[in-house]
Amino acid sequence: MDGVVLSIWVLRLAFLALLYLFLWTVVRTLLRDLRAAAREPGAELGRLVVLASPGGEPAVGAAFSLDAVTTLGRDVNNTIVVDDEFASGSHAVLTYRGRTWYVEDLGSTNGTYVNGNEIEGIAPVGFGDELQLGNVRVRLERARR
């Protein structure tokens, strides 16, 4: 076979091989990312990030990883203790039911607000929504994955 034709063949195959080298390198990166994500505890269903808390407990910027049922209030038996003088002992409960989060006001004195609107009974909460209990404002975020 002619040398030129042969080298063109080599070039063509090298081009195709490099396309696959690129894909292989990318896939390796993606797999490493996936494994790193899998190593993190995966039981988290959502996160609660504290935006404002005049009382200092919980601290501003703190992030709580949520279980399927999370109670909030001034009482020390709550999952998340909200030390605010405008919050009730058992203020509200966050529940995850299959597809979405819900917040229920447990008859608090000052009520529970979702994005500034006072809720009556139980209300759905989306990721990115803001809750207010007394003076404490928190935001529901998606779990880190």
Partner: peptide, 17 residues
Amino acid sequence: PPPTARRGLRRVFDRGV
């Protein structure tokens, strides 16, 4: 932040916290 509409708050005295 989403829009917030804050109203007057009542201080809680009923529970012994």
